[in-house]
Every structure is written in structure tokens, then in C-alpha cells.
Simulated assay, not measured.
Amino acid sequence: MSDSTRVLVVTSSILGTHGQSLGLAQSFQRAAEQREGVSLTLRDVVADDLPHLGLEELSSWQVPEEERSAAQRELAARSDDLISEVLDHDVIVLAVPMYNLGIPSQLKAWFDRVLRAGRTFRYTENGPVGLVEGKRAILLGARGGKYAGTPMDSQTPHISHMLGLMGISQLDSVFAEGLNMGDDAKEAALTEAHQQIETLVKAL
């Protein structure tokens, strides 16, 4: 990476300060703050309280900017601002808990606004092509059970495909798993995850 690396950290835990995925994000933040030339932007999609994407908001994207009503401009700004934030950063860090084998609905609401045809990807005769270039992503996953590498892990492919739709194909993952499988398993998993995070941050 260049000497100036801009990192966007997106958190999505509904448990507030008790969320283990937030703990992983904070570990990343502490390590990154020790690095010269690394700047961080924090985006908490739960605190943002993004609503589920609806037809009215989706339709506002289809109206030329100069023709939008005041209400349409306000609705379209949600997506416009989030897309600009992604484009302004070099690394996208997603701190993600696993809820019922999937991602939090708040994070899905974020993806629904940054995955936008004509802005972050386009359709071609050969399928969609990502328009977001030169970026990498890091997934920090916190899970009560152990799912990585098994058919039960529907979360990781989903995230990978959504990032890939934008054109972000480089994805590094750190998982803290088995967090509800006893104190010893939890401590060991978190210790290993924090060590992996430090290694990733050193490579920024």
C-alpha cells in the first residue's frame, strides 16, 4: 500500500459495547492508530439506523439529479453519501457478527445502498462488472459457533459476492469462532483473532 492508507471500518453489532465483533473492530482501530500514514473512518450502521430499502428511495436513484424533488434528493443522499465514503477509502473493514447464519439486517441495508447499478457496478452482456477499483476488504467475523469452511457458513460467500459485485475481489478474513462454546474456547479464539488483526494491520 502507499504511505497514505485510508481505512473505512464498518461495524454492525446490535449489542453495543458488548458486541464481540465490535471488540475486533476496536482491536483493529487500536493497532491502526499506531501506524503512521493510516487514517480511519468509523461507520456504525446500527447507530445510523438505516431503514430497509424501499421503492420510493430506490426510485429516487433513477431520477436525474437536477430533476429530483427535495424529498427525492434527501432519499438519494443516503446512497450517494455512503458510496462516496467507500470510494474515498483504500481499505474497507467489515466487523460482522453472525445472526441466524447471516449478516445483520442493518449491514444488508448498508450494502443495499452501496451496491448500485451505474455507480458501483454496471450490467453488460456478459454479466455485471464492478466499477470500484484498487481497493481491498477485510472481514472481521465474530461467531458463537464454528462455521468457517463448512456448508453452514453462508455468511462469508454472501459478503464476498457482494464485495465482488462492486469490483472488490481481495478479501482477507479473521474469524473469532466458538465464542459461546465455553470460556476457554472464547479466550483462545479472541487471542488468536487479535494476533491475526495485528498482522493484517502491519501489512497496511
Rank of each mutant, 00 (worst) to 15 (best):
W61I: 02
H158R: 07
V201Q: 01
L55D: 03
K202N: 15
R73I: 05
R119Y: 06
T11K: 09
V201T: 06
E192P: 00
K202G: 07
D48H: 07
D172R: 04
R68C: 08
Q196D: 12
E33P: 01
K202Q: 15
E187F: 07
S13C: 09
S160T: 15
T199W: 05
L94I: 11
D81W: 02
V129M: 08
L115N: 03
S12M: 10
D81Y: 00
L50M: 06
Q34C: 04
I168E: 00
V96K: 01
M181K: 11
D44Y: 08
A109M: 07
W61Y: 12
Q26D: 13
N126C: 05
G178K: 05
G19D: 05
G54R: 05
L58I: 08
G130H: 05
E65V: 12
R68L: 12
A77H: 11
A176T: 13
S21P: 03
A148N: 02
W110S: 03
D81R: 14
L131N: 01
F28P: 04
E192Q: 15
F121G: 01
A31S: 12
D81V: 12
G164F: 00
L139N: 05
T5Q: 01
Q26R: 14
D90M: 05
S4N: 15
L179P: 00
I92A: 00
A47L: 10
Q62T: 11
V129I: 13
Q170Y: 06
T11L: 11
L131Q: 05
Q155K: 03
F175P: 02
A31H: 04
G145S: 14
L58M: 13
